Simulated assay, not measured.
Amino acid sequence: MKKSIVIGVGNMLFKDEGIGIYASEYIKQNYNISSDLEIIDGGTLGFKLMAYFQDYDNVIILDTVSIEDEVGSIFKLPSDVLLGLGKYRKTAHEVEIIEMLEIVSVLDSHANVTIIGIVPQDIQSVEIGLTQKMEEFFPLFIKTALKEIEDLGFSYSKKDEISVSDIVKSMIGSYNGTHLSRIPNEEDFTHEINL
């Protein structure tokens, strides 16, 4: 069987920008998938992802996309379409992905790269967790990714029902500020010291 990989990319520090990473981890924790398929958190690896573009037959990237459309719109973007999308290059890793595709496109052999991208609501606020709008579209994003995995010839079955918020908390200890409840605020701390 051909070598295939799913890579979640993004930056978890900027709200919806982390959805690709959350989606890859969500699939890993909630589904059994044919053992030949690799699923990784690519984070902001940037040009280090080029090795996957060269060494694999199929690469599915889960990410946000900077396309002028309604929040939550999901796009399947094959590499040849991506190479023609000048407006796509808005975030740092989007620029890197396009540049890597341009580089490997001149090689004799390179991966069939497809981005499953979702239009985010907020990729500027510094907070770990998804906006409510992205949470609403998250199941469809997962369903779209699983359909692409299935189209490559892999089978999958549901094994668990762990929520995206619990998955993010297990990864980084916080989700939309919920970690704050574990840390005493400054007033409480000062009050305790004065006692």
Rank of each mutant, 00 (worst) to 15 (best):
I33W: 04
T114W: 00
Q132R: 13
K87P: 04
D151G: 13
I19H: 06
N112Y: 01
I61W: 11
L49G: 01
L146A: 03
M1I: 09
S163P: 10
E186H: 01
G72S: 00
I5Y: 02
D55Y: 03
F75L: 03
L195F: 08
F53T: 07
L45I: 03
I128M: 08
M1R: 13
L37P: 05
Y156F: 15
A51V: 03
E25Q: 12
E161G: 07
S66M: 15
H179P: 00
T144N: 02
V106D: 11
Y156W: 15
L152T: 06
E135I: 14
I98M: 02
F75A: 11
S4V: 02
I60H: 03
Y56P: 01
T144V: 07
P120L: 05
R89F: 01
L83D: 08
D188N: 08
L37Y: 06
I116D: 09
S34Y: 12
E192G: 01
K90P: 04
E94R: 05
L130W: 00
E17W: 07
E68P: 00
V9E: 01
I19K: 02
K159P: 06
I98H: 01
T64A: 14
V59I: 02
L13A: 10
K90T: 02
S181D: 13
I19A: 03
G43E: 11
Y31I: 09
I61F: 06
V9Q: 02
S79I: 09
G72I: 07
D41Y: 05
I98A: 11
T131K: 03
D80S: 07
Y52F: 15
I27Y: 13
R182F: 11
D63S: 12
G43W: 15
L195R: 07
G117W: 08
S157A: 11
E70N: 13
V113P: 12
K143R: 13
S157Q: 14
S35K: 15
F138P: 12
S34K: 14
L49Y: 06
N32E: 15
N112T: 04
N112E: 00
S66I: 14
D69C: 09
D80F: 13
V95T: 13
Y175I: 09
L85T: 09
N11W: 07
L49F: 01
I167F: 14
L152S: 02
S109Q: 12
T178C: 15
N58K: 05
V106K: 11
I149S: 06
S125W: 00
K90S: 04
E68R: 09
P78M: 07
M100D: 10
Y156S: 13
D160H: 09
D16I: 12
F14S: 03
I128V: 12
I115P: 04
E102N: 12
D122R: 02
V106T: 10
